[in-house]
Write a protein that binds this DNA or RNA. Structure first.
Lengths: 127, 127
DNA sequence: CCCTTGCTTCGAGCGCGCTCGAACTCCTAG
DNA sequence: CTAGGAGTTCGAGCGCGCTCGAAGCAAGGG
């Protein structure tokens, strides 16, 4: 006997509001396989589960940290392939983390340069 | 009487190596006005001065920190317009810095999430 | 019964930022 | 005198990542 737990679901519009992706983009990501197929209401409308939402957020994170769609897709395919790909996944994530750390270092350096430039301009203005 | 100082110059290939932009991109940036016209040798070849190189580096910094070409162009036009635009320039830079700081915060957050994910996978691997 | 709202699919289109190739010129080395 | 190499201009092309619009359908309210 199973206990029927009515799980909370989200419409595409709600997921859009939560993640910052437009409904168009959410459907596009699903189309290209970046997101798995989302369950539907009888009407045919998408009903995202909490899990689905988690995967959307994960993909958003990959994309915002500069991973290409092709590489993100590759990672998601590894994930769906099962537990034997965990070694591969950890290698991908480590490489990506290293890229990100390098990226952060560059941005910090640039931030310093911009702040110095602002200071110089402000010095010129004070006369 | 002026002292003729033979200033050090750089070929497009050298500027490319220094800045990471391809020669194609350097010419493209000049074409669209993102970089000022560079002095030429008698042969017609570009000879970047130290100053030119500095501006290339500055533009690279704007682009790498996520400023669009259109906005970078706007800033460079302000710069060329003269000292009366310093107020505007400082406003643009401050806004851009604020964007950058926000961007950095997001990336730091994502870095933390990726590291946690790696840890989880490593935990799974140790069995 | 019809209108509105909110979603659906599908294919085409588009903006950004390069990227490339063709044809040409100039300079230097052999 | 010739060949090679590094640069030039110009216009076209392209890859990425959406973005959009048309046409359709299901559910609810007046």
């Amino acid at each position: 006997m199973t206990t029927a737990t009515a799980e909370r679901t989200y419409t595409i519009e709600q997921v859009s509001a939560e993640t910052g992706l437009t409904p168009h983009t959410l459907r596009y990501y699903e189309r290209i396989g970046l997101l798995e197929e989302v369950p539907r209401a009888v009407s045919g409308h998408r009903r995202y589960t909490e899990d689905d939402l988690g995967w959307v957020r994960f993909v958003v994170m990959l994309r915002q940290t500069g991973m290409s769609i092709a590489d993100s897709l590759h990672f998601m395919e590894l994930t769906r392939a099962g537990d034997h790909t965990i070694g591969d996944r950890v290698r991908v994530l480590r490489a990506h983390r290293d890229d990100l750390v390098a990226q952060l270092a560059v941005l910090q350096r640039h931030l310093g340069a911009i702040n110095r430039k602002i200071d110089i301009y402000e010095g010129l203005l004070e006369r």
